[in-house]
Amino acid sequence: MRQAETVTFGGGGLNRAEDLRRHPDQLAALPVRTLLLWRGKPLLDRSRGALQLLDGSAFDAFDPPVFVGEVEGAAIWARDVSALEVEGADDTLGAFLDPSEQSHPDLPPGSAFVELRATMTQMSALDAEIAATAKGALEWHRTHRFCSNCGAETTPGKAGWMRACGSCGRSHFPRTDPVVIMLITRGDRVLLGRSHGWPEGFFSCLAGFMEPGETMEGAVRREVWEETGVRVGPVRYLASQPWPFPGSLMLGAHGEAITEEITVDEEEIAEAIWLDRSEVLSVFAGTHPTVTPARKGAIARFLLEAWLADRLT
């Protein structure tokens, strides 16, 4: 797929500078810019719709930062400040569509912590990649503080890209969970599903986690069969998207259905439907009577728009 890396969080060109992680003296010699995240929300300059990077080791009383990469000769670090007492934490915090913004008097005027999914399409490709990397890495640290081998508490190292166990000597590294997300078509129609907990009428491509020992193609066929009872024949890879909610790599694929009768497994999803091209066009135009479109910036929408425009090759 020629435009694969134009998906949100892809193609930002971030220099991750892995060599500097292994040479702390060289890393320490670079100017420091810090991105703060509060409960996974990056700090944005609202006037520019860009990340708000602070000079120096900002808020260094909080957890150790993670080195994200080198940009224009500066070291970009990310720091979790979720313990910070902020303003603006209302009832919409953590909702499916979280419009809330949080601020703090010690932060630059006009800056706020904003839900990444609400702003990801407004950022430059580089800013989006920095934010996704920072969110994913910090979430891994938050949920992997103890050794999976012996249970002892671990300590971060390698500029935040590993955790070491002083008890048994094991080293642990950030994980990314592979998820297949499928554009399933049969002729001029596409198969969409709605998960439990999603708003009524909100449909997207089917998706599911890959299992050990499974190919991407096998995972596509298994997930579609389990969720909808539809059998899939040929499968091909299209594009991928890092998805730090909390820590997945979405593997976008195109599958050709060889059956069309839907039998939903209600433990897996709430409902599934076939829509033809004209119906999907009306969904994106906002004129469909019952269906609302997949979220802007998500690979599901990227794949559906590519299918509508005959850009899957």
Rank of each mutant, 00 (worst) to 15 (best):
T6R: 06
F9H: 13
G13S: 13
D19K: 13
L20D: 15
R22W: 09
H23E: 13
L27Y: 09
A28G: 11
L30M: 12
T34F: 02
L36C: 09
W38N: 04
W38C: 04
L51A: 04
Q52S: 15
G56S: 02
S57T: 10
D60A: 14
F62S: 13
V66Y: 11
V68L: 11
A74C: 07
I76D: 01
W77V: 00
E85S: 01
G88V: 01
A89H: 06
A89E: 14
D90S: 04
T92V: 02
L93C: 10
L97D: 11
L97S: 13
D98I: 04
P99R: 09
P105H: 03
A112H: 05
F113L: 06
A125M: 13
A125C: 02
E129R: 15
E129T: 10
I130T: 06
A132L: 00
T133N: 02
L138K: 06
R142P: 00
A152G: 15
T155A: 13
T155I: 09
G157Y: 02
R163C: 01
R163M: 12
C168Q: 06
G169R: 11
S171D: 14
S171R: 15
F173A: 15
D177R: 13
P178F: 00
V180I: 13
L183A: 07
D188E: 15
V190N: 04
R194N: 10
S195I: 00
H196E: 08
W198G: 06
E200L: 10
M210N: 07
G213E: 04
E214N: 11
R221F: 08
E223L: 02
V224R: 05
E226F: 03
G229R: 08
R231N: 13
A239K: 09
P242S: 10
F245Y: 12
P246M: 09
S248C: 10
G252E: 00
A257N: 05
I258Q: 07
I258T: 15
E261F: 00
I262H: 01
E267D: 05
D276L: 05
R277E: 12
V280M: 12
V280K: 03
S282G: 14
V283D: 07
H288I: 03
P293M: 00
R295T: 14
K296F: 04
R301G: 05
E305F: 01
W307Q: 08
